[in-house]
Design a protein around this nucleic acid. Structure first.
Lengths: 328, 328
DNA sequence: TTGTAAGCGTTATCAC
DNA sequence: GTGATAACGCTTACAA
């Protein structure tokens, strides 16, 4: 391995000077700079991140924690995180939050021992013991969730988004609209979204019909059955995740119901999944990649001073083939 | 931050002894161990990974490189990597391989400066400059690709898998079978899989019909159109990725053709996507999560000695609703 | 069984 | 403008 001393020797200067040049500090002549850069180049020198981190008490590492590493929502956010991080010279460390917060806490402790520059939490709440595990020096922010006001977060306004989605369906002439919610316990936004649906229904003096799934594909068919058992005459189903929305579209077709002619289906999130069914899922879009990018910017904003970043991002409704107006 | 010296002071021993206890080495009395563990516990001490890595020249970090962080295939492999890594106390650093290998090489250089324990490359070939960038001390292996014999890899036998898929379709009575291949340039397995299809077709004295997509959803509809332009009477389409397979199922339905009654569709990989369409996609399954886990085991096998790990994993055909026998 | 001390590769403080 | 030198927190000979 080539070290800073090797470079110093070749360039005929001291390690301190090499360090100055490599880090773009001031205090050396143009001639020295040239010689050092030449030596760096010819030796293929790259500063050791560990030694540097040990000395400066900080590494260019950003930790990312997601409930499931492999679902579309987290993947798209992670993709945004990865590119923003790379752009700024940071690397990403990936971890999964299990069902209990001890899982996450243990990962955060590890991140602390690597002296990560910050941590991004995807659709999971920050618990006090998690915050404690990370220590006080490392900024933490959650994405795609609104965690009260206790910790910084970045999300759409889920209540309004669900309200808007419901209003959209009502505007299409639907009156009997079922809600397929996610698991309220595991993913907090579900409660908030549910509230938006209820508000829109109440305002329109419509009676709500709802069932809980767990946001994943497989949970939707049985929940749909329960929904239909409550009201067989539903003309629209609002699923609080695209995976569930896709499952509803498919399941309805399996049952011989036409989408959207017999029943409209609206999804949530605008992940790739929403485009993988036929008819493609109308959905409420969250700017997922962008959220990942912004999370990185905001996390690092304390040091580099980027301007303030909004914490509530805009959602928007995307109309595709799975919804249509009710023609009575 | 609490350091090993703090622990030593509280326990009334030297830092060296604390180190021994913490690392489970030998050479201390039971009494000493108790006192040290007590101090560790009460101070919440956790060894600094940077200092440790600097000294030992190795960190518990595994690098993972994928072409797209957000696609289903890579996500599922990464999920396996993550859990196997965590199990063994390792953390995962995530990066993306761009179109050119300089992207990957730069990431590998970073991984080297962190003294990663190993690197896993997902469906991308190892180029000489990548190997050079990583240096010689760090093991590297590729997953879901077969990279000649030059570097260790872990994959199914793609040629045979594609052959088996084609045979399956032929066994169902199909004679006019179109192949929707991926981009041969970017993903090497596509060439190999294509070969398997061609062999099966040749053996059965059937004439091949093929078009290239790029493995992603959007590339499939136009490629399908070209396939149909070549032979409008196709009764089966074999898509070399589930995303393309899903797109074909949906596009066919949009065109008013029934799947599988008019046309059977077979996918490849068995990612979540294959279940997100209706009818669900029959497909060739790769054990993706397992591949991620095995990759970690094998990477670390040099140090800890786990038994030998097979490099060719079994594929299997999964029959779902998108394929049926041809009833003439 | 335990402690002392050197050193991993860097940065930062201080002289010059 | 440049160079010694002292840490950063840990592991590991080597002594005791």
């Amino acid at each position: 391995m080539t070290t800073i001393r090797d470079v110093a020797r070749v360039a005929g200067v001291s390690p301190a000077t090499v360090s100055r040049v490599v880090n773009g500090l001031v205090g050396y002549s143009a001639e020295t700079q040239r010689r050092v850069e030449e030596a760096v180049e010819s030796l293929g020198y790259e500063p050791d991140s560990l030694a540097r981190g040990l000395k400066t008490k900080q590494t260019a590492v950003i930790g990312v924690l997601a409930p499931l590493v492999s679902d579309a929502l987290a993947s798209e956010i992670m993709s945004g995180v990865e590119s923003a991080a790379r752009l700024r010279g940071y690397s990403v460390m990936l971890g999964r939050t299990g069902p209990n917060s001890t899982f996450a806490a243990s990962y955060l402790r590890t991140l602390r021992t690597y002296r990560a520059a910050g941590v991004i939490l995807i659709s999971a709440a920050v618990t006090p013991d998690m915050r404690r595990a990370l220590g006080s020096g490392i900024p933490l922010m959650s994405v795609a969730i609104r965690d009260g006001q206790r910790f910084p977060s970045l999300a759409i306004d889920d209540e309004v988004a669900a309200y808007d989605g419901t209003r959209y369906l009502i505007g299409l002439g639907h009156r009997r609209i079922g809600l397929l919610a996610g698991d309220p316990a595991s993913v907090l936004v579900n409660t908030v979204r549910k509230r938006g649906y209820l508000r829109a229904m109440a305002e329109a003096r419509l009676s709500p019909v709802l069932e809980d799934g767990n946001s994943l594909y497989d949970s939707a068919p049985p929940a749909l059955a329960r929904l239909l058992a409550q009201d067989a005459g539903l003309t629209a189903v609002f699923a609080l995740s695209d995976e569930m929305g896709a499952a509803v579209v498919n399941e309805l077709q399996r049952m011989g119901r036409r989408v959207p002619d017999d029943i409209s289906v609206l999804g949530f999130d605008n992940t790739r999944t929403s485009q993988h069914v036929f008819p493609a899922l109308s959905t409420i879009a969250q700017p997922l990649e962008r959220m990942g990018e912004l999370a990185v910017e905001r996390l690092l904003a304390t040091e580099d001073s980027v301007g303030p970043v909004p914490r509530i991002l805009p959602h928007r409704l995307i109309e595709r083939g799975s919804t249509t107006s009710l023609t009575t």
